[in-house]
Structure formats: C-alpha cells, structure tokens
Simulated scan of single mutants.
Amino acid sequence: MRPGWFLRLAAICGYALLLAPALLVFIISFSAGDFLNFPPPGFSLRWYAALIDNGQLMAALRNSALLAAGVACIALAAGMPAAYAIARLEFPGRGVLAGFLAAPLLLPTLVLGLALLLAMQPMRLAATWPGLMLAHAMVAVPFAVRIMTTAFGGVPKDLEEAAWTLGATRFRAALRVTLPLAAPGAIAAGALCFLVSFDETVISLFLVGPRLSTLPVEMFRYAENRTDPLVAALAMTLIGVALAVVLLVERLVGFTRAVGRN
C-alpha cells in the first residue's frame, strides 16, 4: 500500500527540519564576508582555502582520521567475538553480557570523559594515542557489537552445522563460513565506529593535550574565539567525511545487506 498524502507531507517536513541547518551552514561556508551572517554578502572559496592553509586544523584532521581508523579496528577486534557469542551461543548470562557491553552508551559522555581522565592520568595515558584510542573504543565497541550481533544472527545456522558435519571445528566453521557471510555487517560496523570516533568531542576534550588534538576539539576551540565563516567550512568538512563513509558503505554492500537482513 502506497503512503497517503499526509505521510508524504510529514516525511517532507521531517527531512526539511533535519537538513535545514546543514543547508544553512553550507551556504555560509561559501561566504565572502568576514563574519558569520546570513544571507552572506557574497560568495567565494576563501574560507576553504584558509582552512587548507591552517596547519593546526589540518594536523587535527589527520589525527582524527588516523585515530578513527585505529578505533574502528580495535572495536571490530573486540566486538566481533562478543557479538558471535551473543548471537550464536547459548550460555548463562548472555543477556547480562549484552547489557554490560551496551553500558557505556547509557552514561553521559561528560561523566564518562571525567572518569576516563581520572583513570588514565595516573597511568600517563592522557593526551596519548593509546589513551585516546582506548577511550574512543569504549564508546565504539557497543555499536560494533550491536551491528555484528544482527549480522551473525542473519546467517543461517544450518550452514555452520553443515561445516561441523564435514569435520570442521567450531572455530574453523565460524571463521570460514559465518564470518565471510557476515562481512557486510563488519564493513558497516567498521564505518560506524570510524564515524563515532571521528565526531567524538566531549570525551576528547578531557583527554587531548597541546601536542595531540582532534578536529572536533579544535573546531570547538576555534568557535570559542572567532566568528568567521571558516568554522562553517570546517563543519562542512566533517559532514563531507561522514557522507563519504556512508556512501562508500552503500556502494560496497548496501545498508540492508550490511546489517545482515538478506
């Protein structure tokens, strides 16, 4: 049954509400003026050129990309075994394990960031690559577990049992049969974990230092002191990275297949 006019109108209004702020920022990012105002007095690429010439922001962009890639790998490595156990195995406390892995999402990031700072400072992990990766992985792993649990659950268990009857061990059957079929979910999980880390701000504010900072933190600091359209160009850069990752996942596997709903 096709949706009626009311549902279509509601959908259009919803999309307009979600996209209007991004459209406003997009227009301002091409402003030729010196201040954040709308409508802009003219249009130019001067603020994108200024962004490229800003060494501090470009270094933060590189840091965020490297950090997010490392966090995605850590989250997948830690989340896939847990997701497989939750989706495929029967054992006491399975629900408790799933709840425990989702617990970081229930805590306010402000509280989580402060707790991580207090825990990492004595170990000298604050403002270090390992410390930031572990902190970001803490909030990325629940997303990896959720997506991979769905992906593993979408693989028919009969295929794995058939491999057992042919002499494969449980580990080999999971590695050679289940994991390849759940690969689209792994791609989607890795992409989402990358974006979670790349956009993380609050926890990073507690853990960055003068020699190691991330792009969202530098964007926050820049917006505190200046009101020029460079911050709009920077915001569009963040949106562009997120959009590129989403389109890449859609191009490679498609979202429906990526979450295991074949």
Rank of each mutant, 00 (worst) to 15 (best):
P184L: 01
L134V: 06
A135P: 06
A140G: 10
L166N: 07
P156C: 14
M148Y: 12
W164D: 02
V141R: 12
A183R: 11
T178I: 03
R176V: 08
D158V: 15
L112T: 08
L114C: 00
Q121R: 14
G185S: 04
L110A: 14
A119M: 11
P184N: 04
A115K: 03
A182L: 03
A137G: 15
A163L: 09
L132A: 06
T169N: 02
L179N: 00
A189T: 00
G154L: 05
A168H: 02
W129S: 00
V155F: 10
A182N: 07
D158A: 15
R176W: 12
T169S: 15
V111N: 10
L125H: 09
P122K: 04
G154S: 07
V155P: 09
P108T: 00
A127W: 06
W129N: 00
A137R: 05
L118C: 07
I187V: 13
M133L: 15
Q121T: 03
R176A: 14
L117N: 08
A135D: 10
A173P: 05
A188I: 00
H136F: 12
A151Y: 03
V155Y: 04
M148A: 12
W129Y: 08
A126L: 09
V141Q: 11
L181V: 06
P142F: 04
A191T: 01
Q121L: 12
G113W: 14
L117F: 15
L125V: 02
G153T: 03
T150L: 13
A137D: 12
T178H: 00
G190E: 10
M123E: 13
A127M: 04
P108I: 00
G167E: 09
W164Y: 15
P122C: 10
L116N: 08
L116K: 06
G113H: 13
T165M: 12
A163E: 09
V177Q: 02
A119E: 10
I187S: 11
R146K: 14
V155Q: 03
A182M: 01
A173D: 02
P122F: 08
L114M: 13
P130K: 01
F171T: 01
F171H: 01
A173G: 03
F143W: 14
T178S: 14
P122T: 04
L175Q: 01
M148G: 10
A189N: 11
V141L: 12
V111E: 14
M138I: 00
A151N: 06
M123W: 12
V155I: 14
A168W: 08
D158G: 09
A140H: 11
G190H: 07
L110G: 13
I187W: 07
R170S: 13
R176Q: 06
M148C: 14
W164S: 04
V139S: 04
I147V: 13
A126W: 03
